[in-house]
């Protein structure tokens, strides 16, 4: 290996807390590694687990899901729904032979720019330790060689 492995991570943020935490980290010039690309949702409750699978299947090595702290959701309680989906998703990933640690749920309020930056740094190191995801290889293993089955299934679900 000539270069160290630089993981690519997709982060889903809530418009009201973690996206603003990212804004705050920026305003405060808090540094974190450039491996994470953030996507804004209105709420962590908007996170369809398909989004996570989509990201992993398209080349991301890890996914970060962020939302308001329990009890502080701007939509009252939708972050709890995100939490439930996250737990189920981790189980599904494990069944697919993918390390559940590649997907991480983080609570960050609009005031927690430093915390968000720290969590991003930690996750980048964790994913770096896990190595590249290599989705096609994993899928081949999980489906006994017929990689297209799962992939096609996902793209169908995506269009639904």
């Amino acid at each position: 290996m000539s270069e160290p492995f630089e993981p690519v991570i997709i982060g889903f943020t809530c418009n009201w807390c973690s996206y603003r935490a990212a804004d705050l980290a920026g305003t405060a010039r808090v540094k974190y590694p450039p491996n994470v690309r953030l996507i804004r949702l209105m709420c962590s409750g908007r996170l369809d687990p398909t989004f996570v699978l989509k990201a992993l299947s398209q080349g991301a090595d890890g996914v970060m899901i962020t939302g308001c702290h329990p009890g502080e959701c701007h939509y009252i309680e939708q972050n709890y729904k995100a939490m439930r989906r996250y737990l189920l998703l981790r189980r599904t990933l494990a069944q697919m032979g993918i390390e559940p640690g590649r997907v991480k749920l983080v609570w960050a309020s609009a005031a927690e720019g430093v915390k968000l930056a720290k969590e991003i740094s930690t996750l980048v190191e964790e994913i770096r330790a896990l190595g590249p995801l290599n989705w096609p290889g994993r899928v081949k293993m999980a489906t006994g060689g017929n990689g297209t089955a799962v992939s096609a299934h996902i793209s169908q679900e995506v269009t639904a």
Binding site: R37, I39, D48, T50, K54, Q58, G59, V158
Partner: peptide
């Protein structure tokens, strides 16, 4: 924030890493 928009964004963000 439609599925189409978010999925396209994910795809776009990763299309040069594939």
């Amino acid at each position: 924030f439609s599925n189409g928009q978010i999925l396209a964004q994910i795809e776009g963000m990763l299309m040069f890493d594939q």
